[in-house]
Amino acid sequence: AAVLRRAGPAEGKVAASLMRTYPSGWGACGIGAGGTRFDFHRQPEEFADNSLFHMDGKELFRLTSRHFSGFVGDLLERAGWRQEDVDLVVPHQASPIALAHMARQTGFAPEKLVDIAARFGNQIAASIPFALDVARREGRVAPGMKLLFLGTSAGVSFGGMALEA
């Protein structure tokens, strides 16, 4: 989590936020034993066989590749920003490979990305607030900077926020 406070006069602001879901990826990941599909007491083997998270990484990669750059473009447009206006990108990062692909796909220079995956591994849902904390500790965030937060999740959903520090 990240704790924000109300901005004072001439302090930062949320320039835009956007969330989108592409439900065609619903079957590409999940836990089959969730809900009432398999009864733990009457079907213990089926329940156990379907209790672990599964993911079709190739399918999720295809869906993300198809839609993510357009999502980022729409977020920037809502903020009234151009790509070159962004000072720092704080992305969700499941792996160094996924982060490199996101950089290629969106066109952000590697030095504008907060890259924690190689040093700290997959932080899952905590990667955005963790990356923001790393960037702040490293002195990469200063008042007046334009920050772009980009998140992805299985299924496929995207979330983003354009924030002026």
Rank of each mutant, 00 (worst) to 15 (best):
A2Y: 11
V3S: 11
R5D: 13
R6M: 11
G8F: 04
G8C: 05
P9T: 07
P9S: 12
E11I: 06
G12A: 11
G12K: 04
A15F: 13
A16N: 09
A16Y: 05
S17P: 00
R20S: 08
Y22H: 11
Y22K: 00
S24M: 11
W26V: 09
G27E: 13
G32D: 06
G32Y: 02
A33K: 00
R37S: 06
R37E: 10
D39C: 15
H41W: 08
E46S: 14
D49P: 01
D49W: 10
N50M: 10
S51G: 14
M55D: 09
M55C: 14
D56H: 12
K58A: 15
K58V: 11
E59L: 14
F61Q: 09
R62A: 14
F68A: 01
S69P: 04
E77F: 06
G80V: 05
W81H: 06
Q83W: 11
E84C: 09
D85M: 07
V86F: 07
V86H: 02
V86M: 06
V90L: 06
I97V: 13
A98T: 03
L99V: 07
M102C: 05
A103S: 13
R104V: 03
F108S: 04
F108W: 08
E111M: 07
V114L: 04
V114A: 12
I116E: 05
I116M: 10
A117V: 03
A117R: 01
F120C: 00
G121A: 05
G121Y: 04
S127Y: 01
I128S: 01
D133H: 12
A135I: 05
R136C: 12
R140C: 12
A142K: 14
K146I: 12
G151V: 01
F158Y: 12
F158C: 00
G159V: 02
G160W: 04
E164F: 10
